[in-house]
């Protein structure tokens, strides 16, 4: 068991390097915001650990500064967290049979952890459960470390880190590209991109996620018959292509990781 864990850690770490950068930076920003809003350093640390949803935590700062309204706080957290439902549905079959780790894997679902665990081509001989566990654990630790450091030293940072958060955008673009090259007709990808862009335009930056999810869910449900036929046709061709792609991808990530 120890050996399985060690092998999986080695395989998982390179995939989390972009998240290490992004979470440390974003966590730091969150910790700074908390501390400049007058909260002690352990507030960002504890909330980072137990809530562990960046967007909700940033909102929480505002909520904690306003008057007491637990119902509104609950509703906000439900709306912000709604996309976890999609992640859960996507990971259902993969998180089966991983034993005691399952509870932790579900608890630490985040945009970034989901993205890596969903898209990573796990190398042969690596235990899937342990791979998922390490990605989830490392990511959560990066976030907690960033938030705590921000809460303690936040006000002392003087060098300009502006723009470093783009690392997350870049990671999502790369993962979208991986998905894109796996399919020929790109119906899902285009539904996500165009549907969300339209919802953003109509509903504005603060309320477009739920409408986007409804649009994505509706379009993909209506197109089920057609898409399932496409998937069968593409299966033979794309398995070959994506296998070749992913192998080279994973290798280079590992090279990049150990080289830096």
């Amino acid at each position: 068991m120890k050996k399985h864990a060690a092998i999986a850690l080695k395989a998982a770490f390179p995939f989390t390097i972009p998240i290490l950068t992004g979470y440390l930076f974003l966590g730091l920003t969150y910790g700074v915001l908390m501390s400049t809003s007058g909260f002690p350093w352990f507030y960002p640390m504890i909330t980072a650990l137990v809530i562990y949803t960046g967007s909700m935590e940033f909102l929480l700062v505002r909520i904690l500064l306003s008057s007491f309204n637990p119902v509104a706080a609950f509703a906000t957290a439900l709306m912000v967290g709604a996309r976890h439902l999609f992640y859960g549905i996507s990971m259902l079959p993969r998180y089966r049979g991983v034993g005691w780790k399952k509870f932790y894997l579900i608890y630490t679902t985040s945009d970034e952890t989901f993205s890596v665990n969903y898209s990573a081509e796990i190398p042969d001989g690596v235990d899937h459960g342990w791979f998922y566990f390490w990605v989830s654990f490392l990511d959560q630790m990066y976030w907690v470390a960033g938030s705590t450091l921000g809460g303690i030293f936040g006000s002392l940072i003087t060098f300009s880190t502006e723009g470093l958060d783009f690392v997350m955008t870049a990671m999502f673009v790369v993962i979208l590209m991986q998905q894109w090259t796996k399919s020929r007709r790109h119906v899902s990808e285009l539904t996500g991109l165009i549907g969300s862009a339209l919802c953003l335009k109509v509903f504005g930056p603060d309320r477009f996620i739920i409408p986007s999810m409804i649009v994505i869910f509706t379009v993909l449900t209506l197109m089920r018959g057609k898409l399932e036929k496409n998937m069968k046709q593409e299966a033979a061709v794309s398995t070959y292509h994506s296998a070749a792609l992913e192998t080279s991808g994973a290798e280079s990530v590992q090279k990049g990781g150990s080289g830096s």
Binding site: R83, F86, Y87, I89, S90, M91, L92, P93, D111, S115, Y118, S119, M168, T169, F172, V173, I175, L176, Q179, W180, S183, V187, S188, E189, L190, T191, G192, L193, I194, G195, S196, A197, L200, P205, F208, I209, S212, M213, I216, F217, L220, T221, R224, L227, E228, M231
Partner: peptide
């Protein structure tokens, strides 16, 4: 048993969600 419909969603939702996440990053 996971119903076929949810297995189907599990395959097609994720690529769409990555599109949503890219748009989310650019929302402001």
């Amino acid at each position: 048993k996971i119903p076929d419909f949810f297995l189907y969603l599990g395959k097609v939702l994720a690529p769409a969600v990555f599109g949503l996440l890219v748009v989310y990053c650019l929302k402001n």
